[in-house]
Design a protein around this nucleic acid. Structure first.
Length: 317
DNA sequence: CACTTGACCTGTCCGC
DNA sequence: TGCGGACAGGTCAAGT
C-alpha cells in the first residue's frame, strides 16, 4: 500500500535508473492491469522516457510526443527494474529480490526498455493499474480533476483544508482525509499518523474541528509526509515493500500497527477501531473522544506531550 | 447530494 | 492439520 512517500521514493529511484530510455514493448499478463484498450500498448513503442513525475499516489511517465504512461500501484503493486536479468532497483526486501527470478508469479506486466532494461510490475492482489493517455485525456480525467493539492505544496493551505472539511462536515475526519480530493496522497497509514500527531480523534466529524485543530492537522500532515520522504519512504524499504510476512515501517510509525503498545507520546495503551471501513490506530488519551460535535474536548495540553520513546514491542499482550 | 458499503483480489492469520 | 472466515486497504460503483 504505497502512499505518497513510497511512490515518491519509487519515482526518485526510477529517475536514477531508467530516465531517457526508450520504450520498446509492453507485455500484459493480467488483462485488467491495463486500464486501456489493448491497442493502446502499440502507441508507446519507440517513445523516449523524457521525465518521471508523480501526482498523489500515481506515477507519471512522460513519454515525449504528448504521451503519458501512468502507473498506480494501489495496494500491492511493486516495480522492479532489471538489466540483463539483474535487479537494478525496487521490489521487495533486497536480500530476496536480488535473487528473485523475473518474471515473478505475481508479475502482471512488463515494460521493456532500451539497453536490455525491463520494468516488472509485480502485484499480488491485481489492483494496480497502468494507463496510457495523452495530455487531453489526462487533464480531462475525473480522477485528476478531483485530486486535491499535494500536501507539501503551497496550494495546501489551512483555508483549502477547511473548505474541504466543511464540504464533508458530517463525515469522520479520517474518511475525509482518505478522500483524495481533500489532499492528494494520504492513505490509511499516514492518515492515522497525522491524526495522532495532531491529537485528533479519527472519528470526530470533519465539520466540528476548531480552527486551531485544522491548523494543527495541516501542519501534522505536512510533517508526517515530509519526514517519510526524507527517510526514503521508510515505510517499506525501497517503496512498495510491505510484505505480509512482517517487514514494516517499525521505528518511524507512532501508531500504525501498534495497537496494544504504549503511545510514544504519553504511554497510554494504543487502541484499534474501525473507521470508514478501515482499521484505525489511535491513542485514546492523546486523541480524546470528546464530544463528536467538538466543544468540551479535554484539553490535550494538560500533560506533557513529549516523552522518551518507549522500546518497540514492550511485551504487552 | 452527502455519506456508507461492497467489489475488486490474494495471502495470511486466527479460531475451531 | 485442515477449513472457514475475517482481515489487509486504494479506488470506484452501487446503495442508503
Amino acid at each position: 500500500m504505497p502512499e505518497l512517500p513510497e511512490v515518491e521514493t519509487l519515482r526518485r529511484g526510477l529517475v536514477e535508473s531508467i530516465l531517457d530510455k526508450a520504450v520498446e514493448s509492453v507485455d500484459v499478463f493480467w488483462e485488467r492491469t491495463l486500464d486501456a484498450p489493448r491497442s493502446a500498448i502499440g502507441r508507446v513503442a519507440g517513445h523516449r522516457l523524457a521525465n518521471i513525475t508523480r501526482r498523489g499516489k500515481v506515477l507519471i511517465w512522460d513519454l515525449d510526443d504528448d504521451l503519458y504512461l501512468l502507473i498506480h500501484p494501489r495496494m500491492t503493486g511493486q516495480l522492479v527494474v532489471t538489466e540483463d536479468g539483474r535487479t537494478l532497483f525496487g521490489g521487495g526486501h533486497p536480500s530476496r529480490s536480488m535473487q528473485a527470478v523475473m518474471p515473478h508469479k505475481t508479475t502482471r506486466a512488463v515494460i521493456h526498455l532500451s539497453d536490455d532494461i525491463s520494468v516488472f510490475l509485480n502485484d499480488q492482489r491485481k489492483f494496480a493499474r497502468i494507463r496510457i493517455v495523452d495530455t487531453a485525456s489526462l487533464t480531462a480525467d475525473p480522477f485528476f480533476l478531483r485530486l486535491g493539492p499535494e500536501p507539501l505544496s503551497d496550494a495546501f493551505t489551512v483555508a483549502a483544508l477547511s473548505r474541504q472539511l466543511r464540504h464533508h462536515a458530517r463525515a469522520p475526519i479520517k474518511a475525509v482525509l482518505l478522500e483524495q480530493s481533500t489532499v492528494a496522497g494520504l492513505g490509511n497509514i499516514y492518515t492515522d499518523e497525522a491524526l495522532h500527531l495532531a491529537r485528533i480523534y479519527p472519528q470526530r466529524l470533519a465539520g466540528a474541528l476548531s480552527t486551531g485543530e485544522v491548523r494543527r492537522l495541516r501542519a501534522s500532515i505536512r510533517q508526517v509526509i515530509a519526514t517519510a520522504i526524507d527517510k526514503g519512504g521508510t515505510t517499506y524499504t525501497s517503496a512498495a515493500n510491505l510484505s505480509h510476512t512482517g517487514e514494516r515501517w517499525g521505528d518511524e510509525a507512532r501508531v500504525f500497527q501498534r495497537q496494544g503498545q504504549p503511545c510514544p507520546a504519553c504511554g497510554t495503551r494504543l487502541e484499534r477501531i474501525r473507521v470508514a471501513g478501515r482499521g484505525t490506530n489511535f491513542c485514546p488519551d492523546c486523541q480524546p473522544y470528546g464530544e463528536v460535535g467538538g466543544m468540551a474536548m479535554r484539553s490535550a495540553h494538560v500533560r506533557p506531550r513529549v516523552m522518551p520513546l518507549p522500546p518497540l514491542r514492550s511485551g504487552l499482550a
